[in-house]
Simulated scan of single mutants.
Amino acid sequence: MKITGDHQLIKKINKYLVLDTIRRQFPISRADISARTGLNKATVSALVNELIESSFASETGLGESSGGRKPVMLLFNERAGFAIGVDLGVNYMLAMITDLSGAVVKKKRIDIAELEAGALTDKLKKTIRGLMPHVPASPYGVIGIGIGVPGLVDDQGSVLSAPNLGWTDVPLQSILAEEFGVDVVIDNEANAGALGEKEFGAGRDVSNLLYISVGMGIGAGIILNDTLYRGFSGFSGEVGHMALAQDGPLCGCGNRGCWETFASEKALLVNARAAYDDAADADAAAPNLDTLLSLARQGDPEARRLFADTGRWLGTGIANLVNVFNPELIVIGNRMSLASAWIGEAVYETLDSRSLAFHRSRASVAYSQLGHSSAALGAASMAIQRFFSTMKATWE
């Protein structure tokens, strides 16, 4: 029995390896799969046939010959199933349908004001339900739902604490799994954003990156050696609560002087409210991010000063992280990335002056290539990965 069990396990691993190679390298021939994986050609051919029968792969035209017959090329069936990814922000919700390669089929963004757990969960359900009719027909249908939330999430998918939402101990995974009857993955939105950028965006070609999510709060997704770093208890990345000033502003976490009280969207709006309340045209300038961006584009000096101040505080915190993690790439994402034109110079100047020279010389700074979609795409990617891991466990 032990030999049989080992044989079945090896086959599952090999089948997943072949599928993953097709997913990431298609169009690709059976011979190239064999060369890349080290599996013999007979094994590859048998496993490819099973993947074709399971609708995960298909054959297409002939490729270039390397001396013999032209090889039949294989494609990954990206539309064998579809995932739903959601970025649940503090003042917005972005939900999308993607195929199995992360291509967006449909997305919907809504503003939110009611943060109470029951009301916001109901809105989340309604938003996901509203996307369901737009899922194309496919062999596997909706394969899972991924949600990125701004808070601490345990390995059961419960939101233990989300100060900016006012949530404590919300069993979000079980609520949504019961509602929709599919696998649901819940994670911190910065982790989701890091995975989105690593899989589809600015981080595709690097192994060590920090994704800094700057919205109403600040969080970080940390990729080390191509793997998401979660920490001992799974709660890494709460960099917004890194203390920058002993007697600074009161933070939602209960402490004072946290990074996000100086450099988040919320901090920017607090400072904007004070600045424009003192201005003669206060009634004409509502202190929200979209208005401030518009004012900055028009050359408004106060708006540009506010963004520059935010950029300096961002650079200060990022410098600390560069000194600790020595990353290849720092990606600034979420809403504040929209202000790159007005925070960028201050971020770079502060980072150059405050980080160690050897660390800074090899670290690049970029803004999200995925715009506002990093976390939602990363959440969909987590659902897709869960689906294939589950499939691997059930393969014969």
Rank of each mutant, 00 (worst) to 15 (best):
residue 7 H to P: 02
residue 13 I to C: 10
residue 13 I to A: 14
residue 14 N to C: 08
residue 32 D to Y: 01
residue 32 D to G: 02
residue 39 L to K: 11
residue 49 N to K: 15
residue 56 F to W: 14
residue 56 F to R: 04
residue 64 E to G: 00
residue 68 G to K: 01
residue 75 L to P: 02
residue 76 F to G: 09
residue 80 A to D: 12
residue 89 G to M: 08
residue 90 V to E: 15
residue 92 Y to A: 12
residue 94 L to W: 11
residue 100 L to K: 03
residue 101 S to R: 11
residue 103 A to W: 07
residue 111 D to Q: 13
residue 113 A to S: 12
residue 113 A to I: 10
residue 113 A to M: 08
residue 115 L to R: 14
residue 117 A to V: 04
residue 118 G to D: 12
residue 118 G to C: 08
residue 120 L to M: 13
residue 120 L to N: 00
residue 131 L to E: 03
residue 134 H to L: 00
residue 137 A to G: 05
residue 138 S to L: 07
residue 140 Y to W: 08
residue 141 G to V: 06
residue 146 G to R: 05
residue 151 G to C: 13
residue 161 S to A: 09
residue 164 N to A: 07
residue 164 N to Q: 10
residue 165 L to P: 00
residue 166 G to F: 02
residue 167 W to M: 00
residue 168 T to A: 15
residue 169 D to T: 11
residue 172 L to T: 04
residue 176 L to D: 02
residue 185 V to A: 04
residue 188 N to I: 10
residue 193 G to W: 06
residue 196 G to R: 12
residue 198 K to A: 15
residue 204 R to Y: 00
residue 209 L to R: 13
residue 211 Y to D: 01
residue 211 Y to M: 08
residue 213 S to N: 15
residue 222 I to K: 01
residue 223 I to A: 03
residue 237 G to L: 09
residue 240 G to R: 03
residue 252 G to F: 03
residue 258 C to T: 05
residue 263 A to Q: 03
residue 265 E to N: 10
residue 267 A to L: 05
residue 272 A to L: 10
residue 275 A to L: 03
residue 284 A to P: 01
residue 295 L to I: 03
residue 296 A to S: 08
residue 300 D to K: 01
residue 312 R to V: 07
residue 316 T to V: 04
residue 325 F to M: 02
residue 340 S to Q: 14
residue 341 A to D: 12
residue 344 G to R: 02
residue 345 E to Q: 14
residue 346 A to P: 02
residue 348 Y to C: 07
residue 350 T to V: 10
residue 352 D to T: 11
residue 355 S to I: 04
residue 357 A to E: 11
residue 362 R to Y: 07
residue 365 V to L: 15
residue 370 L to G: 02
residue 370 L to M: 00
residue 370 L to K: 01
residue 371 G to A: 05
residue 373 S to F: 03
residue 378 G to E: 05
residue 380 A to D: 11
residue 381 S to A: 11
residue 387 F to Y: 15
residue 394 T to F: 12
residue 396 E to V: 08
